[in-house]
Design a protein around this nucleic acid. Sequence first.
DNA 1: CTAGCATTCAAACGTTCGTTTGAACCGCTG
DNA 2: CAGCGGTTCAAACGAACGTTTGAATGCTAG
Lengths: 223, 223
Amino acid sequence: MTLRAVKPQHETRTRILDAAEELFMLHGFEGTSMRQLTAKAGVNLAAVNYHFGSKDALIEAVFRRRLDPMNAARLAALDALEAANRPPAPEAIIRAFIGESLRMVEDAKGGGRNFIRLLGRTYTDPAKPIRALIGQLYAPVMARFKAALEQALPQMPAEELVWRMHFMFGTLSYTLAATDTVQLIAGCKPEDRYDARLLEDRLASFLAAGLTAPLKSVVRKAA
Amino acid sequence: MTLRAVKPQHETRTRILDAAEELFMLHGFEGTSMRQLTAKAGVNLAAVNYHFGSKDALIEAVFRRRLDPMNAARLAALDALEAANRPPAPEAIIRAFIGESLRMVEDAKGGGRNFIRLLGRTYTDPAKPIRALIGQLYAPVMARFKAALEQALPQMPAEELVWRMHFMFGTLSYTLAATDTVQLIAGCKPEDRYDARLLEDRLASFLAAGLTAPLKSVVRKAA
DNA sequence: CTAGCATTCAAACGTTCGTTTGAACCGCTG
DNA sequence: CAGCGGTTCAAACGAACGTTTGAATGCTAG
């Protein structure tokens, strides 16, 4: 329990989490073996089971380490926004949600970028325990942002808002995860790397326009 | 080579492809074993290697079976659109792209739905051979639709268009893949299943609004 | 009827998987 | 210095993996 004992413990844990973050992002959960994971982390094969209990528990730990602070920051940003002016503009609410993710992408050294791409992958992973975990960690954030958008767009039918939030969520996660599809569309230069500020501007204006799109024929058919 | 010989051959192949489609969607490529796959298909364990050569070749066959006709239909829809009026409205171009995917989702019996969800998953799968295959199959479609949108939106900077197409692609793939996130946002009733026509309306108006969003500050910073 | 071919089958191949074990190692406390 | 909890280590566990094999099977053609 002394200082010397605590530090190396967390050192090994952190090395494992960092390696897992990157390898899970690159090869998926099932595609990453404990042997390559521990080799990359520079720890013994048994270290994962010692520190985390199992591979599944490691997966959960990987998500909790980043997701809890990120969602807390999202809620804080929304709180600050609503304290300033109420209700905030839809685009401002969108920025409160996506900004934290995009800033993590810039943090290439810290490994946050690996996590964000892993997260984007995992949204579409139907494995039950993982989905349950993600859902549980996201539920409060979703509820808060849904309430904020309902207030900002009082004329929007609830069902339509749910779908448009779904679309927004999809755009964000895909944008974060599928970096090379941009190159697929245009023979894009690979040096054109993510600039988080610029990308946030692009995304926010795209999403705000979609979110506040006129309600046209959709309403008629939904009724 | 007679009729009797041809039919059961394709029967087994089809059963394998159908089972693979569903299991890959549910558990991923690495998470699906040949044993559960052949068991679900009701064929012998060795049948996959006999008919396809390897697991990787099976994966490729799963994609080619659906993706080739789907992309051909997309191109045909765009051709018909441009024959009618040139240049077509952006929303019409979008519908030509997303319509074929969404109609596949409705085909629950035919298994097209499984494939669409699998496809949505795979867009964010960074495994190199799979990405290469998807990119190769999609490249011509992407080029055609990009050209069509460039003509429909002559005032839009090329770089901005690429990004907005990226966003659109992401929204589509995520919408198709992550069916249950809608329920996460709202305590949505599970019976509220996909109605392809209605979903196409929702998606098209959302995407068209985003695609044609005003160019605001983004242009200033991108220059 | 029989020879030939495509297909199916049960069984086994060697490899790799996640996990467990029990001994060694470490710095600290009494 | 003896002993102890926390940590690391090499080695092994049984199970499951993708793939291969060689014999059986069923249909077709001569």
